[in-house]
């Protein structure tokens, strides 16, 4: 039986007899810290959709870039598995790692230009039960929202997406981003305010 130390928590890598359910994410991360490649693949299969969605909301990446970003995120998770402190869920921690990977990616000037070009063409979902005028207005508002969200500063949109779109609690976001909770709430407030100002016209029409 191998004993793995993760932060202040000591967990048993091998499951106890009679233990039910799948192996927890934290245990997989502990196995990954010991060099288990299968644990990394299992983490990927469990959380890749959330990471895809998070990254797509954070930046208008094309599919190939998105695939690369997700893969790079899990490679970074393997490198930093021993740094997981156990003070937040693994999912939140994965999104924080993805946010850092994206930040490094956007810093490169060529990628930034590609993102700027992609901002002009955001594919939008269509529904069949709305009028053409309503569909056009909705597409315009969504395009504007996407453009404003992607153009927001990295630290504001990270907090906004993690808290409001991914549904992670403020305390957990503060833990994985190494921020105080007050800072998280302030950034969330600022992000919401910027988006509401940008969409004020459409939101007034809707109401």
């Amino acid at each position: 039986m191998a004993v793995v130390v993760m932060g202040d928590v000591v967990q048993l890598l091998q499951r106890q007899p009679g233990e039910e359910g799948p192996i927890s994410d934290a245990l997989l991360l502990a196995a990954l810290a010991n060099g288990d490649g299968n644990a990394l693949a299992e983490l990927y299969l469990r959380h890749h959709l959330k990471v895809y969605r998070f990254l797509a909301r954070m930046a208008p990446l094309d599919q190939s870039h998105l695939d690369d970003m997700v893969q790079n995120t899990f490679l970074a998770v393997r490198q930093g598995a021993h740094r997981f402190k156990g003070n937040a869920s693994v999912q939140s921690w994965l999104l924080a790692v993805a946010a850092n990977i994206l930040k490094q990616h956007i810093r490169k000037e060529s990628r930034r230009r590609a993102i700027a070009a992609a901002l002009t063409e955001i594919p939008l979902e269509t529904t069949t039960d709305e009028t053409p005028e309503a569909r056009l207005a909705r597409q315009n508002s969504m395009r504007l929202l996407g453009k404003r969200l992607h153009g927001m500063s990295h630290k504001l949109k990270t907090v906004f997406i993690m808290c409001d779109l991914e549904g992670i609690s403020g305390s957990e976001v503060a833990a994985v981003l190494n921020l105080r909770q007050g800072t998280v709430w302030r950034r969330l407030h600022d992000a919401r305010k910027q988006l509401r100002v940008a969409l004020a016209e459409y939101m007034e029409v809707d109401t």
């Binding site: 990254l55 599919q63 695939d67 997700v70 979902e125 996407g146 779109l165 919401r192 509401r196």
Partner: peptide
């Protein structure tokens, strides 16, 4: 506003991509 933002397009990898990366 949050509900509108949740309607922004997501990334959906193909099954082949998921298998390859895994």
């Amino acid at each position: 506003l949050i509900e509108m933002a949740k309607g922004l397009p997501d990334g959906h990898p193909t099954s082949q991509t998921v298998t390859r990366i895994a």
